[in-house]
Amino acid sequence: MKSEIWAIGGGKGGTGKSIITTTLGIYLAKQGKKVSLIDADLGGANLHSFLRIKKPKKSLTDFFEKKSPLKEIIIKTGVPNLQLIVGDINTFNPTSIKYTQKLKFFRHIISINSEFILIDLGAGTHLNTIDSFLLADKKIVVTVPEITSIENLYNFIKKALFRKINRILRDHQLKDVARNAWKNRNVNEIKDIKTFLYYLKKSSNQIKNLIDKELENFKIDIILNQVRNPNDIEIGFSIKSLLIKYLGIDVNFSGYIKYIDSFWDYYNGSQTHTSNENVLCTPLLNKDTHGLVNNLVEDKQLNLFNP
């Protein structure tokens, strides 16, 4: 089975990455797609809570350290077609996992018999987070229409792009070019990613071609969460446009999710349900999500003229 890996990140904490990962997963599973959720949030794995199941004992650490097969750490969620793998604080610890291991993990993961593998990256711009983001087929970022969240989003994307360019140069034995450019950034008048790329592109045609190709293929999908009015949606279009024009990358504004008042109540208010029957009717499963998931699956974006 061909599987598609979606990574969900974005930098800022509390923007809705986990609930959105869960909702997307439930939605796809309901459509009959086989879906695996991977909770790669360092310290704050909580997808199981949104699914109202107990935190599993085995985690990805067992895969990396004890060589447990992936299928031993996969757990059922109670939702048909939807399964879950959790990480824990040790899993993506920089000292415990190397880049080659990450590659191996991604190779293994596509063998787990799922059409969609959704990875909740958690908050932050840790190198491991960024690497997982870059290895995914779909790079999804979640933000809310608030200045701090947008600022973190830009940093997240810039960091990812920076890492990607460095990696590509390294793959072509051009590691030193990037390193020296950065080391002498004062002399080279490099002050941000844009001037960094500009400097590198000037240095040789080969590098220019490599970078141009990378930029063209670097594609981000934006989900705007906690939208309260039409103006907020315009902010989504602004973010998209600014990223395209500033960084020269490809950006989709895939969709938005409205701020839902009853949300807190649903998850926290009446913690009486012990079963997970009602996870199937989370308040986020609505018309907006429908459009959003379709756009993500079909690689389309929000209608510019009728958002």
Partner: peptide
């Protein structure tokens, strides 16, 4: 200027 432009 907007909350999308100010951070950048």
């Amino acid at each position: 200027d907007s909350i999308a432009t100010i951070p950048i």
